[in-house]
Amino acid sequence: METIDIFSYFLLLLLLLSGIKVVTTSNVIHAAIFLVFTLATTAILFILLSAEFVALVLVLVYIGAVIVLFLFGVMITRAPLGPNAELDNDQNKLFATLISLSIFGIFTYILLQTFDSTVVISEGTSTKLLGEILLSRFVFPFELVSFVLLGALIGGITLARKDNALMDEDQI
């Protein structure tokens, strides 16, 4: 077993542990921090898989922007910042465990039966090549996504805006 294999197994373990922490911790802020952890390990995994640009995007977009947005969300909705036993819906726990375990089981069964090839770890991907493909072969989806983002922007503003004309006095 090579060093890189050991390293990647360790990485995957870290990924899963922090992922589990995200959904089990009773502290809202901790959950967000563990999500940062999960995403960071994913980014390292991407670099291992020679997808440097994607890793970078993940760090910039997720860790840089989305998590901050989440923290804003947590604060605006006045979630209790300390440990909070109310965070989970206890009656769902048993079924949720069963369902997620069976989904995991089905996935694993299929994956073990279907894929057994190895991952080629090359020198890395040229970002220039990625950009060229993105703007030639995928230019239509690329433009489409820009519209989706524009829509999301407008939608977010419209939804979150405090419309004074429509607001009641007691709803602040």
Binding site: G19, V22, T77, N89, A96, I99, S100
Partner: peptide, 12 residues
């Protein structure tokens, strides 16, 4: 699966 568990269990 962890994500699905989270969706099903979380209240917030």
């Amino acid at each position: 699966s962890i994500g699905i568990y989270g969706i099903l269990v979380r209240r917030n």
